[in-house]
Amino acid sequence: MSQSAPLLAVNDLTVTYGGIRAVDRISFSLNEGELVALIGANGAGKSSTLRAIAGIVPIAEGDVRLAGESLRTVPAHEIPRRGLVLVPEGRRVFGELTVLDNLYLGGYTRSPEERAAGLERVFALFPRLKERASQAAGTLSGGEQQMLAIGRALMANPRVLLLDEPSLGLAPVVVEQVFDLLRRLHAEGVSMLLVEQNARMALAVADRAYVLQTGRIVMSGAAAELAASDEVRARYLGAGRLSTVPLDAPAPEPEEAR
C-alpha cells in the first residue's frame, strides 16, 4: 500500500431514508494519526455518515474504504474486527451490566490475552473505571459513562475511532474533560473522526474539519482556518452572542476563590 493512501477514505457516500437523501454523495478522508471533525446543523447528515461507515445503516451509493479495503458489504459486527469502532451518540453503555462487563464486551472481537492487555490500558487511562469496575454501568454519572463508552471502544484497539457527539448532554466541566481526553488520544496517535454540535471545541482539537449542510460537504480545510471563517462563525459558532459565557471570555478570578 502506498504511503500516501488515507487510512479511511469515504467516496461519494450516499445514505437514504425512505427516499430522502440524508447524506448525498460526500467524499472525505482521514489519514493515519489524524483527528478530523465533521460539523454542521441538526439533520445535516453527520450522524448518518458515521452510522453508515460503522455499518448500522446501509450505504445506498458510494464506498467506504478502510486501509484500502471496502467496507460496503461488510456486516456491522465484522467492522470492529477490521479495526473501526464507533462510540455511539448518547453513550449507550449497557446500564444493567457492570463496568467490567461493558469493557469485556468492547473487547469482544479479541483474544483473552489481548483483552487483558486492553483492560490494563483502559484502566490506566481511566482510573475511575477501575474503582467502579464491579458497579452497574447505569449508576455512573454522565461523564463517567462517556469515559466508559470511549474506554469500551478502545478495548477493541481500533485503528480508527469514530465519535458521535461525545459532549452531548454533559456539564461544561465534563465536556472539557472529554476534549482533554481526545487531545490525549490524539497525541498517542489514535486516528479519530469526530462528529460534534459543539463546533467551537471540535475545531479547537481537530487537525482538519468538514462542514456538512443538508447531506453535502460545503466547506473543508484546516480546523483553525475554518474556526476563523466568517461564515462558520456566523452559522455554527453563534458569533457575537456569547459574550457573557465564561468559556468564551473567562471571568476575572473572584476574590473569594483564594
Binding site: P88, D101, L105, G106, T109, R152, A156
Partner: peptide, 25 residues
C-alpha cells in the same frame, strides 16, 4: 454472567445495535 457469549446475549437483550458496534453477531 461469566462467558463472553453470555455477556453478548445480555448485551443483545439490552441494546442490540450497540452490541453490534462491539462486534457481536
Amino acid at each position: 454472567t461469566r462467558t463472553q457469549l453470555g455477556r453478548a446475549i445480555r448485551a443483545t437483550a439490552i441494546d442490540a445495535e450497540t452490541a453490534r458496534l462491539m462486534g457481536v453477531n
